[in-house]
Amino acid sequence: MKRLKSTALAALLLAAAAAHAADPNLGRNLAATCANCHGTDGKAVPGSGLDALAGESKEKLLQKLADFKSGDKPASIMHQISRGYTDEQLRLIAEYFAAQK
């Protein structure tokens, strides 16, 4: 019975991982949470004092997110928000914004 539970759990985890990886809109969906501050699709309102994310390089965005997550870059809220995402999710967010024009 214990082996059956372990096998079932492993199957569920694999299915969840496959469903997660199969979502072609995951980056967009994750990035949507940034719209309140950084504007729709990362196009911040000019003069708002917030960074526009659309069109920035993926590498630059990932570095900023990593600096927020580690606490190396001070912020009012981004250090808290960035810690709520995995490195893979942050990569997807950065790729999405880098692709926006």
Rank of each mutant, 00 (worst) to 15 (best):
Q63F: 06
H20I: 03
N25L: 10
D67Q: 15
K60H: 14
T33I: 00
I77H: 09
S57W: 03
A16I: 12
L9N: 06
T86H: 06
T86A: 10
L92A: 04
K64D: 10
A15D: 07
N36T: 15
L50N: 13
K64H: 07
A18W: 15
K60E: 12
C37F: 03
S70T: 15
A54D: 09
L13C: 14
K58R: 13
A19I: 08
L53F: 06
K69F: 05
C37I: 04
A94G: 05
M78N: 04
D67P: 01
L62D: 10
H20S: 08
A32M: 14
I93P: 04
P74Y: 02
L50T: 13
A99I: 08
Y85D: 02
L62G: 11
A18K: 01
E95A: 13
E88P: 07
L30D: 05
L30V: 02
F68H: 12
A22F: 02
R91T: 15
A22T: 06
A19T: 08
A32P: 01
K5H: 04
A21D: 12
S70W: 10
D87T: 05
L53G: 03
Q89L: 04
L13I: 14
F97S: 06
G55K: 09
L9V: 11
R28F: 12
K43V: 13
L12R: 05
A35S: 14
I81H: 12
Q80E: 13
P24H: 00
Q80V: 15
K101D: 13
I81D: 00
T86N: 03
S48P: 05
A75P: 04
M1S: 10
